[in-house]
């Protein structure tokens, strides 16, 4: 059932350029793809290993800023993405090893505090080194020609770009499918990891560290390893997002609110399930982008009734989002996928 929902979501994402023709829908679909990778990589940490980190956006940011800086300085080539993104990934791994070895030995709450401090430092550094990072304004740059909207993937006899099911077969579509394919591959790779012997060790570490050590697994090594793996996936997600947006700034990749969103998505979907990442990302993103529209429609439809239009005023969308979250936690205490997959106790 849960995996059926996940497959339907991926199919929906694959067909989204042909189902929804507006720009915002395409932006939301691409954001969902990238965030599935980001949230699934966070689930590797919090759900499969029991590590609560607030440094995840730093890894996302390192990938994004690596690619963005290289694209700005080296020009819009594939080499810039590979070199810049590669540097971003390497820096993410180095930082993950550093944080991991320094603080994964200590108790969970101290580790969380360390990551929170590092995340705050990263935001300040990006702001301070504005010559390099663009500061609060961020960086805009050009991407390879293939991804430009003006690029024609297929042309008709008159030299016009071919439309299929109402969608232009242009560079924007190529960019979307690159985002989609990369995200799907990365997601499948993470599913492979959690179903491998390494995944079993991670689950054992989450359940009982002392027991895991007593059968021969050095917990700190495995925690650092999964922290690094998670950092690599987050950094690659950052690179994909940077290339898609053609803009990288603190608000899009590094802000604390993104980390809170990721945490919410994991909790809503269900920690330690991987399928939950997909469900959580879709629900929260749809709520963030479309709840106001739905409320607007609701307010208009109930305009003649007392109080209800006021309550459905789109400005109050956060209230409804909060209420929905409370109800979700109440009815799905282990997240949507987590509760649906949970074996029933006789």
């Amino acid at each position: 059932m849960v995996w059926g929902i996940v497959i339907v979501i991926w199919l929906g994402l694959a067909l989204s350029p042909f189902l929804f023709h507006d720009v915002r829908s395409q932006q939301v679909a691409a954001r969902i793809c990238v965030f599935i990778v980001l949230v699934a990589s966070y689930d590797l940490l919090i759900g499969y290993t029991g590590i609560v980190s607030f440094a995840h956006t730093i890894f996302f940011g390192l990938g994004a800023y690596g690619a963005a800086t290289a694209l700005r300085h080296m020009g819009p080539g594939w080499d810039a993405i590979v070199i810049g993104g590669g540097i971003g990934i390497v820096m993410a791994v180095i930082l993950a090893i550093f944080i991991g070895l320094l603080s994964l030995r200590v108790k969970a709450i101290f580790f969380t505090m360390v990551t929170l401090a590092v995340a705050s430092v990263a935001v300040v550094l990006v702001s301070q080194f504005s010559d390099f990072t663009g500061g609060e304004d961020g960086i805009t740059y050009k991407v390879p020609k293939l991804f430009k909207p003006a690029t024609k993937l297929l042309v008709d006899d008159d030299g016009h770009v071919v439309r299929w099911l109402g969608t232009k077969l242009n560079g924007k579509l190529a960019a979307f499918y690159s985002v989609f394919c990369m995200s799907l591959l990365l997601y499948l790779a993470m599913i492979r990891i959690v179903n491998s012997p390494l995944g079993t060790v991670l689950k054992a570490v989450r359940e009982n560290e002392t027991r895991a050590e007593a059968i021969g697994y050095r917990v700190v090594t495995y925690r650092t390893l999964v922290f690094c793996i998670s950092a690599v996936f987050a950094a690659i997600a950052g690179i994909i997002y940077a290339v898609w947006l053609k803009y990288t700034g603190p608000e899009t990749v590094l802000s604390f609110s993104i980390n809170i969103d990721i945490l919410l998505m994991v909790v809503i979907g269900g920690m330690g399930t991987m399928s939950g990442a997909v469900i959580g990302v879709v629900l929260l993103n749809l709520a963030q982008y479309y709840l106001r529209d739905i409320m607007q429609l609701g307010a208009e439809a109930t305009a003649n009734l007392p109080l209800i239009p006021e309550l459905l005023n789109p400005d109050r969308w956060l209230l409804w989002l909060g209420l929905s979250f409370i109800l979700l936690v109440y009815f799905f205490p282990a997240g949507i996928a987590g509760t649906m997959l949970k074996p029933r106790v006789k």
Partner: peptide, 19 residues
């Protein structure tokens, strides 16, 4: 000292050489 959240197979595989 078993891991309740894992299956019987996974519990044994953890202790098997290279899984």
């Amino acid at each position: 000292g078993i891991f309740g959240g894992l299956t019987v197979e996974e519990n044994l595989r953890l202790a098997a050489n290279k899984g």
